[in-house]
Structure formats: structure tokens, C-alpha cells
Design a protein around this nucleic acid. Structure first.
Lengths: 126, 126
DNA sequence: TTGCGTTGCGTGATAATGTAACATAGAGAG
DNA sequence: CTCTCTATGTTACATTATCACGCAACGCAA
């Protein structure tokens, strides 16, 4: 089941809601219900194969190889595309900031909303 | 209405769901419905008086003075407390990373889950 | 005054997202 | 075989969020 969910996410490329995935699974599994999908997604996100986009309530296959460190998700509010990038040193800074208050960081959620290159056109040279 | 919602959030101090707020408003407004609360929250988040915690589906009064730049929300997964901090230079870095792909950043969501000083200080394996 | 646009809110319905609780099925160890 | 563990199926429900419509209040200009 996890493999099927992962395949759907990879094939689609972009973010999908749990219920989009549910619909995609229905042809093959007519009787499928939400808990099955959520369980598969939980296992996949735990394993680092899938990211959850908290600000979209959606899920996306992790591109590239598994990394322990979290990713920066750049979300285009215009076309809905999402780009994944990493910046380990930035994560470290972030953890350090939290640690100043005795906070022990375990999971980073970093999502940047904006407009992607395609949608933004070409101006805005800063 | 916005003022009432803001007062409730400030008084509580921590994060509240929209429906928690709804319940808090019910004594004074017996006929209140979800759209009213969501409209007030939308206006308050737009104005920077309230933060939305995307990974909790909750809302929190902004502490300190209004800042244009986004905040880093440190969320304790144990006790639910949330600390707000800022790091403008880190935001800048983050925007810069996104800009490498031609992405124009407009809104940053940065939420760090972990264990706060109070909860982590004591040994607990609940 | 009247008319007009804007804004905020009420109302009812419904959509979208997520979980709890318990039942079932199959693999592997002893 | 039987026990146990894990994954999944199943039913029902809980939580979070939005849509569409209408109305009342306000400011403001003719």
C-alpha cells in the first residue's frame, strides 16, 4: 500500500491531498477508506520518502535521495508548484536559535510561499 | 468582533483552534457560526496581530510589537506551548535561497517542533 | 433627503481533512 | 498448531474550513 501511494505521488510530481490519493487508489481498491491512506502516508513521511506540506494540508514525494535534514519547500501560490531545496547550515542556525531558550528542536517545518519563476514572469530584478 | 477574538487569544496566551475561539465567543454571541470566526482571524492574520500555526491548525496572538518579517514558532510537542522569535537575517537567507530559482518569496512559514526547556529538563518517557 | 457602494456579520448548508475503535488477515517464531 | 506482531479493512465520527446568500449599518455624494 505504501508503495502504491508513493508511486502515485511520484507520478504526479506535485502535492496531492490525502483525498486526492484516496481517489487515485479507488480504481484499484474500490473499498478503500481514509485510514488506509493516512497510515501509508504516516509511514512514508516517517521514512522520509514523502513530505507533508503543512500549509497546504498536502503531501509530496521527496525528490532526490533521502536526507535526514529537513527541506525548504517553496510553494507557488499562483500555479501550485512546489520546489524542494536544502540548506543544512540554515537548519543548524534555526536549531541554535531555538536552543537559546532551552528548546530541543526535532522537526523543522519550513515553507516559503510566493510566486515561482514561471508565474512571476521576468521583471522584479532587485 | 476582531477585537473580541484578539482579546480571547491574548488572554489565553497559547494557540487556540478556530473552534476553541468559537466556543469562547458563544456565551456572548449565542448564534455565532464558523464563518464569523474565520473572517475575524483572516483579518487579524492579515494585519499581523495573529499568527496562524500551520502545523497545528491553530492561531495565536502575536507577541511583542508588530513586525513585517515573519516569526519562528517553536512548538513544544509535549506541553503544547509555543514561543515566538525572530531572525530577520535568517529570513533573508531563506528568501535568497528561493530566489536562486527565480522564486519570489512573500510569506515564510517557519515552525520548529521539539521539546521546550520545561518539558525537556525533566526525564520523561510517557 | 435619497440612493449607492462597501464592509461586516448572520445563517444554513456543506466540503475537506483527519481519527478512534474495533475487526480481520497473514507471516514468522516457537 | 498456536501465539504474537504488523498491516490492513471497516464503520463511524470528529475536526477544520468554506460557499452562497441576505441583511443591516455606515459613509458619502447628488
Amino acid at each position: 500500500m505504501r508503495a502504491e501511494v508513493l508511486a502515485i505521488l511520484r507520478k504526479h510530481g506535485g502535492p496531492l491531498s490525502a483525498y486526492d490519493i484516496l481517489d487515485a487508489l479507488r480504481p484499484a481498491h474500490p473499498k478503500i477508506a481514509p485510514p488506509t491512506v493516512y497510515r501509508a502516508l504516516a509511514a512514508l513521511t516517517d521514512g522520509g520518502d514523502v513530505h507533508r506540506l503543512e500549509s497546504l494540508n498536502a503531501f509530496m514525494a521527496c525528490r532526490g535521495q533521502h536526507h535526514d535534514h529537513a527541506s525548504i519547500m517553496s510553494i507557488c501560490d499562483d500555479c501550485g508548484s512546489v520546489d524542494e531545496s536544502t540548506a543544512p547550515e540554515l537548519m543548524k542556525e534555526l536549531s541554535t536559535i531555538a536552543e537559546k531558550f532551552g528548546f530541543e528542536a526535532r522537526r523543522h517545518v519550513i515553507e516559503v510561499h510566493g510566486v515561482c519563476a514561471t508565474c512571476g514572469g521576468e521583471e522584479t530584478s532587485r
